[in-house]
């Protein structure tokens, strides 16, 4: 028998080991829910799986009696649209500002202090200001996410640009490149995959700001629904919605990773020998 530190699971074993905690957790939930319902059959805190499945099928596959919409679908579309627009705007701003401040020292001197200051403002603290300025509609929610994640993305992009080996920038200049050509042919293509990585990291905060904004003022959206049904202690809807949001977040992360690998294949090429 090898030492524990030298034992590695094979592929199947790895999947199995990864699943164990989830299965255990589910089993624990079913057991606890069963015990609670046995004591009080009207208990709302831990609904049985069957109740949850019923609630989900009602939300997802039956049109709402009031509006005729499939609620889970319209909630998902509304939330993802806000998130998508906000993330695209943030990515674009941080790409432009991050690259420019990273490579042009005078711009960095002028803009970096502002970005740092803005990044220290807690975005939720200025949510009321956003509501006052942009109204209670879509713009203020998107603005909250943009304000929340852009400063981080700008600072990260700027750092990544400054981390590029100086030799490369010098080499480009000896090949006759002007500042603009250095930016679009040398820096931009090398920074894009790093921006995607930063985006993946900032998705968590983006969701946080989205749900916060939806909870306060909205008429549809995943966050709105959770906070709406909270009034009726509808755990049978809240729990699957939380799971659904997690799945969506996971899927976005996965897609971004795949995108980065397929669009920028040079990152993955194995190292050559000596």
């Amino acid at each position: 028998m090898k030492r524990l530190i030298n034992q590695y699971p094979n592929r199947k074993g790895k999947i199995l080991l990864g699943l164990i905690p989830f299965i255990l957790f589910l089993g624990l939930y079913v057991f606890a829910s069963h015990e609670r319902l046995a004591v009080n059959e009207n208990d709302k805190l831990m609904p049985a799986l069957t109740t949850i499945v019923d609630a989900v099928s009602k939300m997802a596959f039956e049109p709402s009696k009031r509006t005729g919409e499939y609620l889970m679908l319209s909630d998902t579309t509304a939330s993802l649209t806000r998130l998508g627009i906000a993330v695209c705007i943030s990515a674009l701003i941080s790409l432009i500002v991050g690259i420019l401040t990273g490579i042009i020292p005078k711009l960095r001197a002028s803009i970096s202090p502002v970005v740092t200051t803005v990044s220290l403002i807690p975005p939720l603290a200025i949510l009321p200001i956003l509501f006052i300025i942009f109204g209670l509609g879509e713009v203020s929610k998107i603005m909250l996410i943009v304000l929340g994640i852009t400063p981080f993305l700008i600072r990260d992009t700027q750092l990544r640009v400054m981390e590029l080996p100086e030799e490369m920038i010098i080499k480009a200049q000896t090949l006759g490149a002007n500042s603009w050509q250095v930016i679009i042919r040398v820096i931009l293509p090398q920074i894009l995959p790093k921006l995607i990585d930063a985006l993946r990291l900032s998705l968590g905060s983006a969701w946080l700001f989205l749900i916060a904004a939806e909870a306060i003022s909205s008429t549809e959206g995943l966050g709105y629904r959770i906070f709406l049904v909270r009034r009726y202690l509808s755990m049978d809807i809240i729990l699957p919605y939380v799971v659904w949001i997690t799945i969506l977040a996971f899927a976005m992360d996965y897609l971004l990773r795949k995108l980065s690998r397929s669009v920028f294949p040079w990152q993955l090429v194995p190292k050559g020998e000596g």
Partner: peptide
């Protein structure tokens, strides 16, 4: 500028 070419020990070529 382009009158002076350079080869460094490392990072002289563009990985992308």
């Amino acid at each position: 500028d382009k009158h002076r070419g350079i080869v460094f020990q490392r990072y002289s070529v563009f990985p992308h």
